[in-house]
């Protein structure tokens, strides 16, 4: 299973999102072609209701703990309830460009 499918399957199973986008942004970073290392997730789920941002992110991080320990290098999260998603008009925030720090990884 690809990293993308893996992420999708786990998030759907654990958070039953009303809306889910799994965006592979690996190409924006200094990684080999085809690497599935940098992802952005937009998750709209009722399960986030009443939770502060940090708790929501921790929840997603723990669902994807195995992936983060094996190949998933960066995970950008946008975690919203349906109400918040609607209020924000479904807009997303652009991810920042790579500045080359990953090269330091490979030298070690």
């Amino acid at each position: 299973m690809s990293m993308r499918q893996n992420i999708e399957t786990k998030i759907v199973a654990e958070l039953s999102p009303e809306h889910l986008e799994v965006i592979d942004e690996s190409h924006m970073h200094s990684v080999p072609p085809g690497a599935e290392s940098h992802f952005k997730l937009i998750i709209v789920s009722g399960m986030f209701a009443g939770e502060p941002l940090i708790r929501r992110h921790q929840r997603v991080n723990s669902i994807l703990a195995a992936e983060l320990n094996g190949g998933l290098h960066a995970l950008s999260l946008r975690t919203l309830t349906a109400e918040e998603w609607q209020k924000k008009g479904g807009e997303t925030v652009a991810s920042p460009p790579c500045l080359g720090g990953g090269k330091a990884d490979k030298e070690t």
């Binding site: 920042p96 790579c98 500045l99 080359g100 720090g101 330091a104």
Partner: peptide, 9 residues
């Protein structure tokens, strides 16, 4: 000189 876009942000 941040070495990563996320850090720079």
């Amino acid at each position: 000189f941040p070495q990563c876009g996320f850090s720079a942000a």
